[in-house]
């Protein structure tokens, strides 16, 4: 299992246990993390599961693929550390991952 911390814009945080193999978005939805909409259900088609990856974890989560980068055009306040959480697969390596939820998905 991997522990993932979601930090809300107001500073509150939730820690969830995610099973390797699921996506970070799925782990968030399973645990009803506020602010992760995932309107398209994980098809990389809506940009409403946007998260900011904590500086320390950016190497491990990697960079968005081209399709994800294109879809990030539909998100707001996109930064270098922006990812769509439906495109991050949970692995044991990501145990301890810290993510920030944007103020609004749209």
């Amino acid at each position: 299992m991997a522990k993932i911390t979601f930090i809300q814009p107001d500073g509150t945080s939730n820690v969830v246990e995610a099973e390797p193999g699921v996506t970070v978005m799925e782990a968030a939805k399973l645990n009803e993390i506020p602010g992760i909409e995932a309107e398209c259900g994980g098809a990389c088609a809506c940009a409403t599961c946007h998260v900011y990856v904590d500086e320390a974890w950016r190497d491990k989560t990697g960079k968005p693929a081209e399709m994800e980068e294109d879809m990030l055009d539909f998100a707001f306040d996109v930064r270098d550390e922006s990812r769509l959480s439906c495109q991050i697969k949970v692995t044991e390596d990501l145990d301890g991952l810290v993510l920030r939820v944007p103020a609004k998905q749209y």
Partner: peptide, 8 residues
């Protein structure tokens, strides 16, 4: 004119 895709 903002074009950020569609939402339901």
């Amino acid at each position: 004119l903002p074009f950020f895709g569609l939402t339901m």
